[in-house]
Design a binder for these strands. Structure first.
Lengths: 356, 356
DNA sequence: CTCTCTGTCGAAAACGTTTTCGATTCCAGC
DNA sequence: GCTGGAATCGAAAACGTTTTCGACAGAGAG
């Protein structure tokens, strides 16, 4: 390992000067600086990040916590996809990422912030923090910049980044309206914060059109099973809706499976639109039309938030990133052909994407 | 931040003694050691990992590279699952994980091993390395322990860890045989190494039963589209197989979608079994029966491999971890009811798992 | 010519550990 | 009483940087 001393020795200068030259300080002569840079390159010198951290007290690393909600967020959902966005952002700004997870109990007898402290990370991004987490207090009062992704809590000094749930739901509802649906129901998940927002969008949309009906509301818990149950409930109605907006893909797929079992066809008899765009949502029965969370954008936004706070000290309360409607095959005009998709959909102007 | 000096000062001893006491050296008195440990706890002292690394030259961190094969491994959310296993193993052995990805081009103008060197990580785990990677040479001659996951290359000093593909395929084929299938075809992916192994298992199985037929072999490329094409080809045969073993879930789902379009029912008319157990494979049309890769086990095995090599210097060429058959609804007895699953399946004795 | 200022460089401390080596004490054994 | 060794502790170097401060030269101003 070639150190700064080696290049100091070969040039007959002091290590301090080498350090200053390499770091672009202005108190070193142009000619000498050039020679230092040359031999540094020649010797294939790379500064030791460890030694640098020891003196600068900044580690240029940030901790990422992937919190496992008993397999809910991580295994089938897209928790990992956020990581992709974080990763790209970190690479672009030359930060390192150290990864933690709370699946192992022995290690997480300590608060996440405590772990950050002991690992000397500059900032933290936590994905999947729940409102009843036992370390919630610590997180909200953290002495370092913290960004929260895919979480249901609010308040405190952390910055929250999530999809713009109401705008996303509006995208889906506008698409259904454009297809000609008047009787659109919702399968909501009112126990969660994003679930409530998505429902509110539905309620406002329905009310604005004079189409609000209490019996077009069913409650689920984000599981496919609750979707199947809701399908049975909807199918037994005398005035069945022609379209259903589900608060999550998992429930939307549950609806599809439920209707399938009951012999009602999707999308011929009823259109279904989900929310999330979980992995392989394009492969389930009729490929799912859904509003896709911009997981990459969310991850990058979270990273930028903590790093900006680190640099400038300016903290942002909340960051909403726009989702995108991706139309596939689970929605059609009421009674129309499944492939019908008129040009000029209002959703199209906002970045609709069509995939096979 | 309370340092080792604080402890030394409050106790009136030297820092060296404190360090030795805390690290369990034997040249410090029992009574003094007890007092040191007490005040360390009292002062909430935590050793600074940065300073420690500087002197010990071991960072207790390892680099993980998630290589993106243009969205193939990563976006479908398979690669990330390995990370979960790696994470748990690292937590158990008190190592930190720094994460890299090659999605950002600017950062990866350098070899992965070069990055490890500059980041001073002790070992590396690379998931998704391709045989035509431009840094392949560097990886195979790396001066640090390296484990390769989900890769198609071999040779060199790295240790390869993957599913036992032949055993897994055998699991699926035995299950089909037990259900009563005599005419089982395969949709293979011969361009990839695991694909070839899975095919070989089919060929051996078929040959052993005198059921080998060239026209029961179709080739795909791991995409759902190739599965749909194969479905059309199989459906047009005069002597159509009653079961198909697909070399991947994506192709298996493609088969299902293709048959669905042609009006042949799964599993009533043809049984289909896949390989991988990708996320949400239980939600596609008929829930997919498949052989599940033990992603957790693979990740942990990779981690143990590099860490053991670090500790003892003993390297392992290859590690095969056993997959598991998970039976759902895409397989049935030929002409039988979809829910038929006889007791005492031979696969059951090897850890078959049944999920709704 | 002297004084001050600017530009350029080196010396040294500092960051928080670990580890080596030597010093000191104490006690057993002769 | 002296020697030898074991037990216990401290001093100091070392790891590879960054940063502060002072030294020195030269130049420009008075």
């Amino acid at each position: 390992m070639v150190t700064i001393k080696d290049i100091a020795r070969t040039l007959g200068v002091s290590v301090g000067t080498v350090s200053k030259a390499l770091n672009g300080r202005d108190d070193v002569g142009d000619e000498l600086r050039a020679r230092i840079i040359d031999t540094a390159r020649e010797l294939r010198y790379e500064p030791d990040p460890i030694a640098r951290r020891l003196v600068t007290k900044r580690s240029r690393t940030l901790g990422v916590f992937m919190l496992d909600r008993q397999g809910f967020g991580v295994r089938r959902n897209f928790g990992w996809l956020f990581l992709d966005g974080i990763l790209r952002g970190a690479a672009a700004r030359d930060y390192d990422l150290v990864l933690f997870s709370n699946t192992d109990d022995t290690r997480y007898e300590r608060s996440y912030i405590d772990i950050c402290r002991s690992r000397r990370v500059d900032a933290a991004i936590i994905v999947g923090l729940r409102g009843d987490d036992r370390y919630l207090e610590d997180v909200l009062n953290a002495p370092i910049p913290v960004a929260l992704i895919d979480t249901e809590v609010s308040g405190g000094t952390a910055t929250f980044v999530s999809s713009d749930n109401k705008a996303g739901a509006a995208l889906a509802l506008e698409h259904l309206a454009f297809l000609g649906h008047e009787k659109v129901a919702t399968l909501r998940a009112p126990f969660s914060y994003p679930g409530r927002l998505r429902y509110e969008a539905w309620a406002e949309f329905a009310a604005a059109r004079g189409r609000y009906r209490d019996d077009y509301i069913r409650d689920g818990d984000f599981t496919p099973e609750s979707g199947m149950a809701a399908a049975a409930a909807f199918a037994s109605m005398k005035d069945m809706p022609t379209a259903i907006f589900a608060a999550s893909d998992l429930m939307a797929i549950g609806l599809i499976r439920g209707f399938e079992r009951l012999g009602v066809r999707v999308p011929e008899d009823v259109s279904i639109v989900g929310f999330d765009d979980i992995p392989n949502a394009d492969l389930v029965g009729p490929a799912l039309t859904t509003v896709a969370q911009d997981t990459l954008g969310i991850g990058q936004a979270a990273l930028d938030a903590v790093l900006d706070e680190l640099d400038s000290g300016s903290r942002r309360e909340e960051i909403l990133v726009a989702p995108r409607l991706v139309v596939r095959r689970s929605c059609a005009a009421p009674g129309g052909a499944p492939d019908f998709l008129p040009e000029g959909s209002p959703a199209a102007s906002r970045g609709v994407r069509r995939t096979p």
